[in-house]
Design a protein around this nucleic acid. Structure first.
Lengths: 194, 194
DNA sequence: ATGAATAATGAATCATTATTCAATAATAAT
DNA sequence: ATTATTATTGAATAATGATTCATTATTCAT
């Protein structure tokens, strides 16, 4: 028998994140992903059914990680909802500091997957938002947060805003520090413009 | 001589908006756009150089319209910056009420154009944001708006948030009324969560 | 009516790339 | 060392769909 050497599966995934980030999903070539992973073109198909399933796997892992982290934050009873919100934002930013290419894929490519029903990415995204919603509801219940905002709308607004800011950063990282971005987002969500 | 009958150019553009909205830019087929416009496949190329230039034209017209509208709002001296902000949001929402498919293309497809330098879509977007920034600056100067928010970051956050909310609406228009969306966005931008 | 002149057609072409698969290489078991 | 088994390769194939272009249709000027 022969064993698989190294971790080609992960190498291909990392390569795909890089290539998707640089060229966008549709322009990305399997052969280029294979090159980046130091693997033959055909080997990609030993580990992934097709191109789309690579993107699917990226988002699956990403949402799993984000949701697991969020679940822990939601449960905590030692901090108030406002602090929880800060931690969620930190979680997002930390992940993308560690992997800027992933940030770019995250902000730009998810809608390819949501339109088709294949995979459960849309569901995972909803689950994440549902969980985040609990923090807001806790805040409203404890009269810390403003009750006038529609939570369903709010949660989409926030995630969209954060995505947009991250996209900007992923394309012009020189002009903005993530640190500054992070502070501003936290502040703005709570206080608004007035 | 023979004249061009009807307005095929516009018919193709409208068809493209529909098809791009439904399938996304990359999955959209020229032949399908031609069908929707009741025109032969080849005719598309009488009016547009290639597929990308169709998308380019859509965004060019869109940003021109939005920027023209914004310019008028910015100039007004009879209303305060807070009201101006409301009008900008109204402007966006009105446009997309009139044409939901355009909203979907707007929120999902712009990044195809920004990465490449072809066309000046990125510049038009920047111009729009610069103009919007003037409203915020006016508000800060008049002490109506909070001076602690970084305007550059803020403007990306807002547009991203609005996009996200519109995307949600364009995919599930039954559950949310745009009216409600609009009010919430206006309120939230100003007051935040606390 | 006739014939330039231009518009429109859509099947054929071309280019691009995802995917396959026959051949080869590497490993483990005997 | 030999063989069986599985992994890997990358050139060949297949599929897709954008673009072209030879042909046909329509309009207008005379």
């Amino acid at each position: 028998m022969r064993k698989r050497e190294g971790n080609k599966e992960q190498a291909i995934l990392n390569a795909a994140i890089k290539v998707f980030a640089q060229h966008g999903y549709h322009r990305a070539k399997i052969s280029s992903i294979a090159d980046h992973a130091s693997v033959a073109t055909g080997s990609v198909y030993l580990y992934y059914k097709n191109k789309e399933s690579i993107l699917l796997t990226i988002f699956d892992q990403l949402w799993t990680e984000l949701t697991d982290g969020l679940r822990i934050i939601v449960k905590r009873s030692d901090i108030d909802p406002s602090q929880k919100l800060d931690l969620v934002i930190d979680k997002l930013f930390d992940l993308f500091i560690a992997n800027p290419a992933l940030a770019s894929v995250f902000v730009n490519e998810q809608h390819h997957l949501i339109k088709d029903k294949r995979g459960d990415i849309a569901k995972q995204y909803d689950d994440f938002l549902d969980l985040a919603e609990e923090i807001i509801r806790e805040g409203v219940r404890k009269k810390i947060f403003n009750a006038d905002v529609d939570i369903k709308i709010f949660r989409h607004f926030i995630t969209g805003g954060i995505r947009s800011v991250l996209r900007q950063w992923s394309e012009h990282s020189q002009t903005l520090t993530l640190q500054r971005l992070r502070q501003n987002v936290k502040y703005f969500i709570k206080h608004g413009l007035l």
